[in-house]
C-alpha cells in the first residue's frame, strides 16, 4: 500500500470515516464529467486497496461516482450527500 496522504479540505468532512491515508481528490466547483475524470486520473497511479476520497459540488457526482465504481469494479465505502458530495472509495473490491 503506497497511497500517499495529502492534507485536504475534506479531512474533517461529514462522511464520518477517518481519511487517514486516503488520497483526496478535490473536484469541487467542476462540472460533470470532471469529478469522475479526476477520480479516474488519481486512481491510475494507485494500487488496488488504496482509498480515494472525492469531493464535488456538482450534484451529478452523487450518481456518477457510484456508477463509475460499479463500472470499474471499485468499492464505494461511503457516500455523503449535501451541499457537497463526498465519496469514499476503496480501489478494487
Amino acid at each position: 500500500m503506497t497511497g500517499h496522504s495529502e492534507p485536504g479540505p475534506g479531512d474533517r468532512g461529514a462522511g464520518g470515516l477517518d481519511d487517514g491515508d486516503a488520497v483526496i481528490v478535490d473536484a469541487r466547483e467542476t462540472r460533470c464529467p470532471m469529478p469522475v475524470i479526476m477520480a479516474a486520473k488519481a486512481a491510475q497511479d494507485l494500487p488496488d486497496g488504496a482509498r480515494l476520497v472525492v469531493l464535488a459540488t456538482d450534484p451529478a457526482a452523487a450518481a456518477d461516482l457510484p456508477a463509475w465504481c460499479r463500472l470499474r469494479g471499485h468499492t464505494l465505502l461511503d457516500l455523503h450527500l449535501g451541499d457537497e458530495v463526498r465519496a469514499d472509495i476503496r480501489l478494487g473490491t
Binding site: D58, A60, A67
Partner: peptide, 23 residues
C-alpha cells in the same frame, strides 16, 4: 445529463437506475 441546456439537475431516472448521468 445535467450539463445540457435543457436541465440543471441530472436525470432523476438515470440516477434512480444507478446509471451514469453524464455523457
Amino acid at each position: 445529463s445535467a450539463c445540457t441546456a435543457s436541465t440543471l439537475e441530472p436525470s432523476h431516472v438515470l440516477a434512480a437506475m444507478g446509471l451514469l448521468t453524464h455523457g
